[in-house]
């Protein structure tokens, strides 16, 4: 029983991080209808920013953390202005490919700047594992989860109450009406990209803190697709729920199935679940069904 509980607890901890990254993804999708295949690379770059500020420049943790947020926001801003703005109204394939191309550029740049060597953060949290009853969670997982959840709550509140959040929701809902209400829709696109990049960078930071960083860290970004599709591409609540489901499924599969199934079940399981969900509900669990008219 404790094994099961431990898997669930670890699943929830990882799922929280997935939820945060997926949130950034959904923010971008909702506002701009762009599916960001470079999410994983945004995570990786965020983690490297932190490494640069903290290890290479020797800044303390908190200022580094803030600088990472600033840096990722700038990255999102630059990407939107330089590339994505030209892609407005282009067919889906072009938009998908442009973000894939972007991810390749970021990956290559990271290898050029930081080399492909494996790097570690200095220990940020007390090493002692968190013990709850019979369940033991590694401290990095636990604190990662706490930070991720805090960020999710901040983003959700921002989205619900802050003026910019309301404007973003209006943009996502109906661009024409948003325009006519005096919302600068283009600025909203930029804001969405910046926020998406920040969310991804925070996720990357947490994951980098758990397993170390190298340029291929972005591969974790692939797991985000089952998460967002599970919840529905345009649902924030769905992103959070999807994150937890994928985190738990992944850990349960890794814990129970690896004796019977060869190879990396942990990485495969989310995609199998993804296919099953899509077969039953083609727009994810919470996604908005697209109604088309001629």
């Amino acid at each position: 029983m404790w094994f099961f509980l431990e898997l669930i607890a670890n699943g929830i901890a990882v799922g929280g991080v997935y939820a945060l990254i997926a949130l950034g993804f959904v923010l971008i999708y909702k506002a701009t209808s762009i599916i960001n295949f470079a999410t994983g690379e945004f995570m990786m770059i965020g983690a490297y920013f932190f490494y640069t500020f903290m290890v290479m420049l020797g800044l303390p943790a908190i200022p580094s953390f803030l600088l990472v947020m600033l840096g990722s926001a700038a990255l999102g801003f630059a990407v939107e202005r330089a590339i994505l703005r030209h892609m407005l109204g282009q067919p889906t394939i072009s938009i998908v490919m442009v973000t894939i191309g972007l991810s390749s550029i970021l990956l290559g740049l990271a290898e050029l700047i930081w080399t492909s060597d494996f790097k570690n953060f200095p220990p940020l949290f007390p090493r002692a594992p968190i013990i709850m009853g019979e369940v033991v969670i590694r401290s990095n997982f636990f604190w990662g989860f706490v930070i991720a959840m805090a960020a999710v709550v901040v983003f959700a509140l921002l989205f619900k109450y802050a003026k910019v959040g309301v404007a973003m929701r209006a943009t996502a809902n109906d661009q024409m009406s948003a325009f006519s209400m005096g919302i600068n829709v283009r600025t909203m696109f930029t804001v969405a990209w910046s926020m998406g990049a920040i969310a991804a960078a925070l996720g990357g930071l947490i994951i980098g803190n758990i397993g170390g960083i190298q340029p291929t860290l972005g591969m974790v970004g692939l797991t985000i697709f089952p998460v967002v599709i599970l919840g529905g591409l345009d649902s924030i609540a769905g992103a959070v729920v999807g994150g937890f489901i994928v985190g738990i499924v992944e850990n349960l599969a890794g814990g129970y199935l690896h004796e019977y199934v060869p190879g990396d079940v942990k990485e495969l399981a989310p995609f199998v679940v993804l296919v099953l969900i899509l077969l039953i509900k083609p727009y994810g669990l919470f996604g908005k069904e697209e109604i088309e008219r001629l």
């Binding site: 972007l102 390749s104 990956l107 290559g108």
Partner: peptide
């Protein structure tokens, strides 16, 4: 030593540049 990362960057740049300037 820079071959592999440069190839990655150029690969991405080609995709992006073609999509933006010559779809």
């Amino acid at each position: 030593a820079y071959l592999s990362p440069l190839q990655t960057v150029v690969f991405g740049l080609l995709i992006v540049v073609f999509l933006v300037f010559e779809p």
